[in-house]
Design a protein around this nucleic acid. Structure first.
Lengths: 144, 144
DNA sequence: CTTTAATCAGACAAAAAAATCTGATTTAAT
DNA sequence: ATTAAATCAGATTTTTTTGTCTGATTAAAG
């Protein structure tokens, strides 16, 4: 199978988007997020802990605790979440799996692929999550 | 971690490119391919069997047997190999892992992502492996 | 016809990723 | 104080992917 982002990263982005679509509320529990997004609660909880550690979301412990965004949605880039969870490998690893692939010792697809990856990187780096928040609620409604 | 193609697919493309860089010779054993590309021989062997089943390479059994391309290199598209090994999921699956993501019920990133995926698809579909064969030998030399 | 060197088929093992569980800690409310 | 509801830390399980092994079959060469 082929993958773009790890499942963890997918759900991380989903969760952050959910948080941003609820800006204004204080904190939101991982229970609510898991229920709304129809995804396993323990998994979401663990991912949000990672994102807390990397400073994208912040958490409040104890009763009435939960998660919230650590910054304004227009200051959080998609790339931040991807780097926090999946790291930067996708952007540097050789698409054909050759070792030491670079412009000095390029693999056959190096140049062609670099262009696509650069575009992807640029998009993730430019897009902030506030561009997406209004679309999230609509998508959530369609989940059964 | 994030991945684009599975390891199987990466090595599948490597192997096909190696075969194409040796057009003119009769057949090439999986042993030679594994040795030249510095990858496990049993794994390469298994991948080439899959590619044989899907008609991209052809095989000759018995002593002096081995693999060769089933078509001219300019008739084999990168996409053929990707589809044969990884299937079409990458091109249709939701980048955020939402179920039923489509233009009717799009995920927040649907439109933005579709553009990048379409470009990628187009590239893989247009590029034939003869465009890459001359670059393969050079890359192989750099492998220690 | 026997040996040798290859593909092929399918079971098996190891490693990685995804998901779950357990229990500790924290904090609000009673 | 005690209880309840949450995060948090880390161990454990399950599933998937990756890689290996074994033996059967095929075909060339002596």
């Amino acid at each position: 199978m082929a993958i773009i982002f790890s499942r963890k990263c997918e759900l991380g982005i989903q969760a952050v988007l959910y948080l941003s679509s609820n800006e204004g509320r204080d904190v939101i529990s991982s229970d609510e997020i898991a229920h709304e997004l129809k995804i396993p609660k323990e998994f979401v909880s663990k991912i949000l802990q990672e994102l807390t550690a990397s400073g994208i979301v912040s958490s409040k412990k104890g009763k009435m605790g939960g998660f919230s965004l650590a910054k304004k949605p227009n200051k959080i880039h998609l790339l931040d979440i991807v780097l926090a969870i999946d790291g930067s490998d996708v952007f540097s690893k050789c698409v054909l799996g050759f070792p030491h692939c670079s412009s000095e010792t390029p693999c056959p697809m190096h140049k062609t692929w670099s262009q696509l990856i650069d575009e992807t990187f640029k998009m993730l780096n430019e897009e902030t999550i506030d561009n997406y928040t209004h679309k999230v609620l609509q998508k959530i409604k369609s989940l059964k």
